[in-house]
Design a protein around this nucleic acid. Structure first.
Lengths: 249, 249
DNA sequence: TGTGGCTATCTTGCATACAAGACAGAAAGC
DNA sequence: GCTTTCTGTCTTGTATGCAAGATAGCCACA
């Protein structure tokens, strides 16, 4: 893929490499990302690694446990629900805002669905995971709105982490069918239906999760004893303005 | 407002202070944010300031001009359009996803609309700018989804920067009326209509912009010649005693 | 065997030092 | 007077050093 880790690596590539690794299900939730390790891997100093980590933290991809290290986030069940909810909101809004599917867009999605089919036939689960997420990013790209694309990319990355934690079986065929139907509605110019189908599709995937399965079997014990380790799931980043009281939890 | 800049300041507060300053229209687009200046203001070293800047950069709030400094973003006309588009997508999706308005929520919005009225009566433009943006954040807060709230907060901050650049007149009454109607639809439980009204409202505000007015009349010339410079018109720094106010651009 | 405490080591947190680019203003040349 | 060049200063870019917390393992001891 990338030309090893020559001195060429600019700082953005650390970020991109990690996100890419998550999107393609090569990096698991909870993976420790040591500053020294990454610095050595990318041939830079800790300073640049830290900058990348800070950026990834604001994107909700990693979190830091003070003096212990950086970890790929392990979304809690509550966070998982919030991510799916956010995706439904954004994706439905996105589809509903569309007015027509360009020929170019039609081709892109069609090609993508073919890739999904091929990966299913080949039984390549890792690639399937990547493709299932990528479909939604491709839809976002059709809007031409970079802001929305970025938002959905990060949400998709989190979604993949969630499925690595809570998804017991992988219903690829079901997801593919969902994508196919969304595409069909878009092709028919019925974006309201496409939006409804997208919501339905995300609901299905969310329903396929076992949110009672704890990522860390001891997490509730830890939490009740307030013994931080892993999971530190406390509120991603709240409020630049009026934090007020809602610390609840 | 905030308890000065005691040694207590943690790094998040740099971020929060700047975003808050933008949301309340106290920081103008293009403002230079020198690392040394901020470090002195907050009583920390440049390291922490840089971390905050990096985070704000990923949030689309500031950008860095290599070896020249950090600046509050000055969205281009194209970016402005993208921001409004993104807001329409997210806010419409959000409203449409709602099922009911709780009594608590109704009270919060009602109180907010009262604040808008008061500020209009008082003619406090800066506060009005803040309130007009805050309405949308409050709506997002009703969803209870922190992800959506964060997204909309950042988009709102950018919106305020955009209006400071391109909005010649401030149609506060019109915006207030838009908010009132959205609230009314929500109260009636008609969230589809609320979403449509929100889109309409954002359209109106966007239409009120003069996107042909360049933030810097020379920017295109500068860009084409890659001659960066920007005098950060007025206000920006208080450190030097140079009295030569830039009388020409 | 089990328990408590100590220490060595590894981690990030943060500040600082220095390098290098960008700019402004003086100086030089015409 | 006008332009060009040079140089000093200011800015960020990056690495590194040191402090301090967290952890694991060892050892003493009951």
């Amino acid at each position: 893929m990338q030309d090893s880790h020559t001195s060429e690596t600019n700082q953005k590539s650390i970020e991109a490499t990690i996100v890419s690794g998550i999107l393609s299900a090569k990096i698991r939730p909870g993976t420790r990302l040591g500053e020294n390790q990454l610095a050595a891997l990318f041939g830079v100093s800790r300073t640049r690694v830290r900058e990348a980590m800070m950026r990834l933290e604001t994107r909700g991809i990693v979190h830091v446990s003070p003096r212990r290290g950086w970890f790929v986030v392990e979304p809690s069940a509550e966070e998982a629900i919030a991510v799916y909810e956010a995706r439904r909101i954004v994706e439905a809004g996105l589809l509903r805002s569309m007015r027509k599917l360009t020929e170019e867009g039609r081709k892109a999605l069609d090609a993508h669905l073919n890739e999904e089919r091929n990966a299913m036939a080949a039984g390549d689960r890792q690639r399937l995971t990547y493709l299932m997420g990528d479909f939604h990013i491709r839809v976002a790209e059709l809007s031409g709105n970079a802001i929305i694309v970025d938002i959905l990319r990060d949400l998709t990355a989190r979604t993949i982490l969630i499925s690595m934690l809570y998804q017991s079986e992988f219903h690829a065929a079901q997801s593919h069918e969902g994508h196919r139907r969304i595409f069909e509605a878009m092709q028919a110019g019925d974006f309201g239906r496409a939006a409804a189908l997208a919501v339905e599709h995300l609901d299905e995937v969310e329903m396929g999760l076992d949110l009672t399965a704890r990522p860390d079997p001891l997490s509730d014990l830890r939490n009740s004893l307030s013994l931080p380790l892993k999971a530190a799931s406390a509120v991603s980043r709240q409020s630049d303005l009026k934090t007020t009281t809602s610390k609840e939890q």
